[in-house]
Design a protein around this nucleic acid. Structure first.
Length: 989
DNA sequence: GAAGCCTGCT
C-alpha cells in the first residue's frame, strides 16, 4: 500500500494496531508508533489510546506514559488506562498523584477511575488520610451507592480498622452483590466483631440472597475465631443442604473450624473426603494440629502433602510458624526456618514476617534482630514486629530508633505501627514522646482507628490525663469494647471507682458487649468502693456471657470478696479457680490487706510459699504492706530478706513499701536507710517517709522532708498533703497547716479530697479550736462525710466540749445511724458531763434504732493459738493468775501517776458496784495475759473489735513504760503503737 | 505475616 503511494488513514492504523495488540509484539507496536508520529496522526486520541493499551499490555509502562503525556484533551478513559497500568504494575504510590492531576485538569472521574484508585490505596504505602478524601469525591460524583466503587471501599475501610464507616457504606448500597456481603462480613470478622458477622449472615440468608462458597468460608472463620463451634456445626448442616459440601473453600473453613475446636475426627474426615484438596486444606489442618501441640501429626501431614503433589508453600510454613510462635515452640520453628531456606522461600514477604514474629514471640530478640538485618527494608510488617520486640524488652530508645529509621527509609507507619510504639511509651512513662506520636497519628489520619485509640486512651488514662483520654473515647466513631475498657480501667487505676462504674453502665446501655477484661475491671471498681452487691451482679452478668471460668473474672471476684472483708467467700471463690496463677494468690493477699485483715493476708502469703507458687512484684508489695499495717516487724523483715534474695529490692514499688514498713513500725532509722539506698525515688517514696514521720509524731522532720522534696522538683500529690497536714496537726502548727492546705489548690493545682478536709478538722480540733473547726466544716464545698464528723467528735471528747460534740454526733448519726460506736461516744460525753438523762436517752435511741452495742472483745495470739477475752472475763483457764498480775500492774501504774478514768463508761450506780473487776475491759486482760506468756523480746499484739476507751489507752501507756515492752493494739479505727509511755496516735484517735 | 484493654506501693 505504501509502495503504491496510498496513504494510510486513521482507520488503517487502528486496524494495524489491533493486529499488533493481538500478537503482543512490542517491537511491531514501536515500529507502527514511529510511522504514526511521522504521519502526523499522533494527535488522534483514538490511536494514542490504542498505543497505550499495547504498551501497557506488553509491560512498557514508560512508553505508555510518554504517549499519554503528549496527548492533549485526554478523556477519562485514557486516564483510567494509565491509572490501571500503574496499579497492575504495583506502582500504586504514583496513582494518587495522577488522580489529583486528573481532577486538577477538570476531567470527571468515573466508576472505573475510583475502582483503580481504591485498588492502589489497598496496596499499602498510601497515607490513609487520602482514603477519606477519595471517599468524599466518590460521594460528590454520585457513586456512593455503586457496588463497583463501594465494594473495594468497604474492604479498604475495614482492613484499616474503620468498620463503622464500612458498615455505613454497605448499608447505603442500592444493590448488594455477593462481593459486598463478603467484604462487610470478612471486615466485621477481621475487626473482632465476629458475632455481628454471623448475625449479618442470618440477615442475608433470610433476605433471600443465596450464599456463595466465599460467604460460607467467611462466616465459618468468624465462628472459629470466636470459638462458636456449635454455630459452626449448624452452618455445616446448611452447607450440606445447599450443596457446597465439596467446595474446596468451604471445606477448608470447616477443617479449620473443627481442628480449632479440637475435634480432629471431624476435621480429618472432611479433609480426607474432600474432592480437591489444595494447599490451604493442608495448611488448615496442619496449623490446627500444631496449635494444639500435635506437632508430630502436623509434620506427618507436612510430608504427606508432597505425596499429594502439593508442594508445601510459604503459607504452609507460615501457618506452622505461627502455630510455633503461639505455643512457644522455638526449636521446631528453627527447623522450619532451615526448611524455608533450603526450599528457597526464605525471602518470601509473608514468611519473613512469620519468621521474625516467631523469634520475637519466643523472646529470642537477638536472633530476631540478626534476621531483621538480613531482610530487605521495604516490608513494613518487619518494622512493626521489631517495634513489638523492643517494646517487649522495655527498650524505648531502640524502639524509637526503629520508628524513626523506618520513616527515613520511606516506610509509612500504619495502624499496626502506632499501637506498638505507643504501648512502649505507655509502659515506660514516655508521655511526651507519646504526645508527639499522637500528633503524627492525627496528621496521618489514624486518630479514629480503634487499635490506635485504645492505646492512646490507655496511655493518657494511665498517666492521669483522664480528661484527654475521655475526649478520645468520646470522639471515637466506632463502638469498641477495648477502648471503653481502657478508659474504665484508667478510672479504676486512679481510684475513680464511681466514674468507672458509670462508664461501664453507659457502655452496656450502648449495647457494647463487654469482654472478660471489661467485666473484671468493673468488678474491681465495685471492690474499690466495697460495693459487694454491685460486684456480684456484674459477676453474674459475666457468667451469663460465658466468662464463668475466665481467670481474670474469677480473680476479680476473689479480690472483690477479699477487699470487702468477706474472708470465707474470698477463700471459696479462690478455691473454685481451676488454674490459679499468681494474680489469684495476690488477689487474696492484697484484698485482705486492704480490708484490714492483715493477719489473714500474711497467712495466705505463707500458704503461697508452701504451695511453691512463684512470688512476683505484686505479692511482695501486698505482703509487706500487710505486715506494715499491723506493724508486724518480724514477718516484715523476713519478707524483706526474701525480697533481697529474689532481687526484687531494685523495684521502686517494693522499696517504697519497705520504707513504709519500717516507718510504720516506728523503726525510723531503717526506713531512712531504705529510702536513701534507693537508686530511683518517686513521689510515693517521699510520701512514705513524710507519712511515716508524721504518724510517729515527728511533725518537724516530716515537714523538712516535704521542703526537700519540693526543692528537688518532685511533684507532691494528694497523699503528700495528707502526711503534711497531719504532721502540722501533731506539731500543733495550725497556721502553717492552713497555709499548706491553701497551697494545694493555689500552688499545686490539687483539688482537696475529703481526707484533706478531715486533716484540717483534725488540725483545728486537736489544737482546741472547736468552733473554728465547726465553721470550717459548714463552709466546706463538698458534703462532709462521716469521718469529718467523727474527727470533730473525737476532738470534742478530748477537749470535753459537750455542745459541739453533740452537734457532731447528731450529724454522724444521720450518716451512719447503725454505728454503735457513735452512740457510745455520745453517751460517754453525757456521762463525762454528768448528764445522766441525756445519756439514757441516747442509749434508748440506740435501742429504738435496733442498734446493738457489740460486746467488746480482744484477741491475742500466743504460740500459734488465739486467745479471746470479753469484758470482765473469768472463763480463761489462767483467769486467777491474770487478775492477780493485773492487780500488780495497776499498783505499779498508780505509783507513777496513773489515775483510773472512772467516767469512761460508768454512772454512779455502776461505779458503786461491789465487784469492779466485772467492768475490766477485754484489752487489759489480753495485754496482761500477753505480758505473762510472751518473752521480753516480742511485742504484745492485741486486736480489739471496738475502739479502745480513754482509760484503757491511758493505762496501756503506763504499762508499756512499767514493763518496758512494745504494745501494739489494733482497734476498730486505727492502730496504736505503745512504747515507753507514749502512743503513736499521740492520744488522739 | 504484625496491634490494643485486666491484679500492686504512700
Amino acid at each position: 500500500m505504501e509502495m503504491r503511494g496510498i496513504r494510510a488513514n486513521v482507520e488503517t492504523y487502528l486496524w494495524l494496531l489491533d493486529g499488533c495488540f493481538n500478537s503482543g509484539s512490542l517491537l511491531c507496536a514501536q515500529k507502527l508508533h514511529g510511522k504514526i508520529l511521522k504521519s502526523g496522526f499522533d494527535l488522534e486520541n483514538v490511536l494514542c489510546d490504542r498505543i497505550i493499551d499495547i504498551y501497557i499490555g506488553c509491560g512498557d509502562l514508560d512508553g505508555a506514559v510518554k504517549v499519554f503525556d503528549e496527548m492533549c484533551d485526554r478523556s477519562v478513559s485514557s486516564w483510567n488506562k494509565i491509572i490501571n497500568g500503574f496499579v497492575v504494575n504495583k506502582l500504586s504510590g504514583r496513582v494518587l498523584g495522577l488522580f489529583w492531576q486528573m481532577t486538577a485538569e477538570n476531567v470527571i472521574p468515573d466508576e472505573m477511575t475510583f475502582a483503580g484508585v481504591l485498588r492502589a490505596c489497598g496496596g499499602g504505602n498510601v497515607v490513609f488520610q487520602y482514603v477519606h478524601q477519595i471517599h468524599a469525591r466518590i460521594t460528590y460524583h454520585g457513586f456512593g451507592a455503586s457496588t463497583r466503587v463501594c465494594n473495594p471501599l468497604i474492604d479498604l475501610y475495614s482492613k484499616n480498622g474503620f468498620i463503622e464507616s464500612a458498615k455505613k457504606i454497605f448499608d447505603r448500597l442500592c444493590l448488594k452483590d455477593s462481593v459486598s456481603w463478603v467484604a462487610i462480613m470478612s471486615g466485621l470478622s477481621q475487626n473482632g466483631r465476629e458475632v455481628e458477622c454471623i448475625f449479618l449472615f442470618r440477615q442475608m440468608h433470610t433476605s433471600g440472597t443465596a450464599p456463595t462458597p466465599y460467604i460460607f468460608s467467611s462466616v465459618l472463620s468468624a465462628c472459629t475465631k470466636r470459638e462458636l463451634f456449635e454455630v459452626g456445626k449448624q452452618l455445616h448442616g446448611l452447607v450440606f443442604k445447599v450443596g457446597f459440601s465439596s467446595e474446596t473453600y468451604v471445606c477448608n473453613a470447616l477443617v479449620t473450624l473443627y481442628s480449632r475446636s479440637g475435634n480432629f475426627i471431624s476435621a480429618e474426615q472432611i479433609f480426607s473426603t474432600m474432592r480437591n484438596r489444595d494447599e490451604v486444606s493442608y495448611n488448615s489442618l496442619i496449623s490446627g494440629l500444631a496449635q494444639r501441640g500435635s506437632s508430630g501429626r502436623a509434620l506427618e501431614l507436612f510430608q504427606k502433602m508432597q505425596l499429594d503433589c502439593l508442594k508445601p508453600d510459604c503459607v504452609t510454613v507460615a501457618s506452622l510458624l505461627s502455630a510455633c510462635a503461639s505455643v512457644g515452640a522455638l526449636y521446631m520453628g528453627r527447623q522450619l526456618h532451615s526448611y524455608a531456606i533450603k526450599g528457597g522461600m526464605s525471602s518470601d514477604i509473608i514468611l519473613e514476617g512469620s519468621l521474625l514474629d516467631l523469634y520475637v514471640k519466643c523472646s529470642d530478640i537477638d536472633t530476631a534482630h540478626e534476621f531483621f538485618l538480613t531482610t530487605e527494608t521495604e516490608n513494613v510488617v518487619l518494622w512493626n514486629v521489631m517495634l513489638v520486640a523492643y517494646g517487649q524488652l522495655n527498650n524505648l530508645s531502640d524502639s524509637f530508633e526503629i520508628f524513626r529509621q523506618m520513616q527515613i527509609e520511606g516506610m509509612i507507619p500504619n495502624q499496626f505501627t502506632y499501637p506498638s510504639i505507643l504501648r512502649t511509651c505507655t509502659a515506660l512513662g514516655a508521655l511526651d514522646l507519646g504526645k508527639q506520636i499522637h500528633s503524627q497519628v492525627i496528621k496521618t489520619g489514624f486518630q479514629l482507628n480503634v487499635y490506635v485509640c485504645s492505646v492512646l486512651i490507655d496511655m493518657y488514662a494511665k498517666h492521669g490525663k483522664l480528661d484527654t483520654a475521655l475526649g478520645i473515647l468520646r470522639r471515637l466513631t466506632e463502638e469498641d469494647v477495648v477502648s471503653w475498657t481502657a478508659m474504665i480501667a484508667g478510672y479504676v487505676q486512679h481510684d475513680m471507682f464511681a466514674e468507672a462504674l458509670k462508664l461501664f453502665e453507659e457502655m452496656q446501655n450502648r449495647e457494647i458487649q463487654s469482654d472478660n477484661i471489661g467485666f473484671s475491671s468493673a468488678i474491681s471498681a465495685s471492690a474499690g468502693i466495697q460495693a459487694l452487691n454491685r460486684g456480684q451482679q456484674i459477676h453474674a452478668q459475666s457468667c451469663v456471657c460465658g466468662y464463668s471460668d475466665d481467670l481474670s473474672v474469677s480473680n476479680a471476684l476473689a479480690s472483690l470478696y477479699a477487699r470487702c472483708g468477706r474472708i470465707e467467700e474470698a477463700y471459696l471463690a479462690f478455691k473454685k479457680i481451676d488454674d490459679k496463677d499468681n494474680i489469684s494468690w495476690n488477689a487474696l493477699i492484697s484484698g485482705f490487706a486492704q480490708s484490714g485483715y492483715c493477719e489473714e493476708a500474711l497467712q495466705v502469703f505463707t500458704q503461697m510459699r508452701k504451695a511453691a507458687v512463684e512470688f512476683d512484684l505484686f505479692t511482695f508489695t501486698s505482703a509487706v504492706s500487710a505486715a506494715a499495717n499491723i506493724a508486724n516487724t518480724k514477718q516484715g523483715t523476713q519478707i524483706h530478706a526474701m525480697i533481697i534474695k529474689t532481687g526484687y529490692d531494685s523495684e521502686i514499688e517494693v522499696s517504697n513499701v519497705l520504707v513504709t514498713l519500717y516507718a510504720k513500725c516506728g523503726i525510723i532509722d531503717d526506713a531512712k536507710r531504705e529510702f536513701h539506698a534507693m537508686a530511683e525515688k518517686n513521689e510515693v517514696s517521699w510520701n512514705a517517709m513524710i507519712t511515716g514521720y508524721s504518724q510517729h509524731g515527728f511533725g518537724i522532720e516530716a515537714l523538712d522532708f516535704f521542703q526537700e522534696m519540693k526543692k528537688l522538683g518532685v511533684m507532691p500529690n494528694h497523699v503528700t498533703f495528707v502526711g503534711v497536714l497531719s504532721a502540722c496537726s501533731h506539731a500543733g502548727m495550725v497556721n502553717e497547716g492552713l497555709g499548706y492546705f491553701d497551697s494545694m489548690r493555689k500552688e499545686h493545682g490539687l483539688v482537696p479530697k475529703p481526707e484533706h478536709y478531715v486533716c484540717v478538722v483534725d488540725l483545728l480540733g486537736r489544737a482546741g479550736f472547736l468552733s473554728r473547726a465547726r465553721k470550717f466544716i459548714e463552709d466546706m464545698p463538698i458534703k462532709p462525710d462521716a469521718l469529718v464528723w467523727r474527727t470533730l467528735l473525737s476532738a470534742c471528747i478530748v477537749h470535753k466540749n459537750m455542745e459541739i460534740g453533740e452537734f457532731a454526733a447528731h450529724h454522724l448519726l444521720e450518716l451512719e445511724p447503725q454505728d454503735s460506736a457513735t452512740y457510745v461516744l455520745l453517751s460517754n460525753i453525757y456521762a463525762v458531763a454528768g448528764k445522766w438523762d441525756s445519756r439514757d436517752r441516747t442509749r434508748q435511741r440506740m435501742k429504738n434504732m435496733g442498734v446493738k452495742k457489740e460486746p467488746g472483745r480482744s484477741w491475742i495470739e500466743i504460740k500459734n493459738s488465739v486467745h479471746a477475752f470479753f469484758v470482765g472475763d473469768r472463763l480463761h483457764p489462767l483467769a486467777d493468775k491474770i487478775y492477780e498480775y493485773l492487780g500488780d500492774l495497776n499498783k505499779q501504774a498508780a505509783n507513777i501517776g496513773y489515775v483510773q478514768d472512772r467516767y469512761a463508761l460508768l454512772n454512779d450506780v455502776e461505779q458503786g458496784h461491789k465487784d469492779p473487776t466485772v467492768y475490766i475491759h477485754s484489752e487489759k486482760l489480753a495485754i496482761t495475759f500477753g505480758l505473762l506468756s510472751l518473752s521480753n523480746s516480742i511485742p504484745i499484739r492485741v486486736i480489739k473489735n471496738l475502739r479502745v476507751c480513754n482509760d484503757c489507752h491511758n493505762w496501756i501507756k503506763y504499762v508499756s513504760k512499767i514493763s518496758n515492752r512494745a504494745i501494739v493494739v489494733r482497734d476498730a479505727y486505727r492502730f496504736h503503737h505503745f512504747e515507753g509511755g507514749t502512743c503513736s496516735c499521740r492520744d488522739y484517735w
